[in-house]
């Protein structure tokens, strides 16, 4: 084999980089499912809890384009036929009134940074 040293060194560097997430996180606390605080003043979201957990980003994306670009403001729930105003702040955050205790719970654990709150104003946190 030509350039044995260089090839093996290169492979070693590759393996170290590739396994970075594993050895970097060894010893840190085990994953615990985040527990976002559910609203007290209402029982039912616009769709079922399971669906929302998986699809809320797509839903918000669609709502955004519908409202901003097409002027369509009404959303009819497929769960119970109820009609909602398509609005993050005026609908979602009216029930989920704390960003810290709801949105951030999962987003922090998952280390995702949606840019919603660069523009949209989160409700004031109760101290």
């Amino acid at each position: 084999m030509y350039d044995k040293g260089a090839v093996i060194a290169g492979l070693a560097v590759f393996v170290v980089f590739f396994s970075f997430p594993f050895w970097y996180n060894t010893g840190s606390a085990a994953y615990k499912q985040p527990q976002p605080e559910l609203p007290k003043n209402s029982k039912q979201c616009v769709e079922s809890k399971e669906w929302m957990r998986a699809e809320h980003m797509q839903l918000l994306n669609t709502w955004r384009d519908d409202v901003v670009r097409e002027g369509m403001h009404e959303y009819t729930s497929t769960a119970n036929g109820q009609v909602f105003n398509k609005s993050l702040v005026k609908t979602c955050m009216k029930c989920h009134d704390s960003k810290e205790k709801f949105c951030d719970k999962c987003h922090t654990t998952m280390d995702v940074n949606p840019y919603c709150w660069d523009c949209h104003v989160a409700p004031k946190e109760a101290k």
Partner: peptide
């Protein structure tokens, strides 16, 4: 004082 009902911009 940002008005929550209307988004700011970025």
């Amino acid at each position: 004082d940002a008005i929550p009902e209307f988004p700011t911009r970025t």
